[in-house]
Amino acid sequence: MEGKYFFNNKDITMNLCIQIRDVIDIIKERDHLSFQDAAGAFYHSKTYQALQNTENTLWAESAGYIADRFYEEQEQKEL
């Protein structure tokens, strides 16, 4: 099976999937949401779009850092 995400010609698909799961778990716990609702919120965010751009190396940051970026984005939407 061929990966979907690459960085410097290395398959990082599993790394990215783990990051996505961990960020969704943080959102789920912090906001008391179901996994599906937390995933939906994250998947429709600019943070998720940025995470898929492997060249910016956001995927290499901790799940907590990525979740913080997600919450910053949500705060900007509220302004």
Rank of each mutant, 00 (worst) to 15 (best):
N53A: 09
G40I: 00
Q49T: 05
T13K: 10
N8H: 08
Q49H: 05
I66Y: 04
S45I: 05
R30E: 15
M14Q: 14
W59A: 00
L33C: 01
C17D: 14
N15Q: 12
V23Y: 00
A38M: 09
V23S: 01
H32F: 10
E29S: 14
N53S: 09
D11K: 07
N56G: 03
L51W: 04
N15L: 13
K4P: 06
Q49C: 00
H44M: 05
D37S: 10
L33E: 03
I26A: 01
L33I: 05
M14L: 14
N56H: 06
D37G: 08
N15P: 00
Y43C: 07
A50H: 10
W59N: 06
T13W: 06
N9G: 07
Y48P: 03
K46H: 04
L16V: 15
L51K: 04
I26H: 03
I20H: 06
T57L: 09
T54N: 09
D37E: 12
D11F: 11
D25I: 10
F7S: 08
I26W: 03
A60Y: 03
T47A: 06
N8C: 03
A39N: 10
M14H: 11
H32L: 09
D11N: 15
N9P: 00
Q49P: 00
T57I: 11
N15E: 14
F42L: 01
G40H: 08
F35D: 01
I26N: 13
A41E: 11
F7R: 05
T47W: 04
A38G: 07
Y48G: 00
D25L: 15
A41W: 08
D22G: 07
D22E: 15
R21M: 11
S45R: 07
K4D: 10
I24T: 02
I24D: 01
Q49E: 11
N15V: 11
L33H: 04
E61V: 00
L33S: 05
A50G: 12
S34D: 06
Y5V: 09
G40A: 11
